[in-house]
Amino acid sequence: MFIMYPAQFNYFAPKSVDETLELLDKFRDDAKILAGGQSLIILMKLRLFSPKNIIDINKIPGLSYIKEEEGYLKIGALTRYSDLEYSDLIKSRYPLLYESIKHLADPIVRNVGTVGGNVCHNDPGNNLPSVMLAYNAEFLVKSISKQRVIKAIDFFIGPYQTALQSNEMVVEIRIPVQEPKNSGAYMKLERRAGDFAIVASAVNVSIDDNGYLKKVGIALGAVGSTAIKADKAEEFLIGKKADKEVIKKASEIASEQTNPSSTPFGPSAEYKKAMAKVLTFRAFKNALRKVGVEI
């Protein structure tokens, strides 16, 4: 404890995904992938985590990209947060993702931290797990012997735990391309700018030409052991016309799906549950306003 000098480790800097997968297969739980390292290196400095082998994937070409293709927004695992922040495509078409990135850590950390690293680290207080759940994102995962696609809902299984096997790595994040009348918003309550969320709510919503809710994604951060998809609230809303009462009800349903615990000397579970509702309501309010619906 109290240290800021990491323990020794063996360092590998593979030049390809295949080479990485070979190393992963060899070391399994004794290895850790270093992507942006903005969580990993902190843990290593404090010696809360001291992996024997570090596999640095930063020297692999072709793992950083943002493109729409085959009905998906495809994001390379090594894409930095700031690449998303300064992407016109993300800013104009993926407001939920954009807002969540703007509220992720700080501008300097965003230059280094990666989307792949964020989802794999699966910190319950971090931004992207809930965003991925709200978008119904998928992750393209590879191991030496196979590749598979894991849905976000199946991926985030517990605090700092994912469905990844020890020999697998995420190579791509896939978010379904959003419909024309789509919007979204990310509301994060934090102690201070750049801090982890006290509670966060991610909302992605599409409406039809008559103003009825066509697609809805809601997920909440920091109110359970991992990000929580508010599927009951989503179901409740589909096909309904968005008004204040409906959204309030949905926010309440979403809040009921959360399972927060009280923070010592900090916010109570009761507060967090209440905030889940308030923030979800506000996220909808902001998102709907962008598609011309006032509630």
Binding site: M4, Y11, L34, G37, Q38, I41, I42, K45, I54, D56, R80, S82, P107, I108, V109, N111, V112
Partner: peptide
């Protein structure tokens, strides 16, 4: 070309 926190990179 990118600002980084040099305590959080090897």
């Amino acid at each position: 070309g990118r600002a980084v926190k040099s305590c959080t990179l090897f």
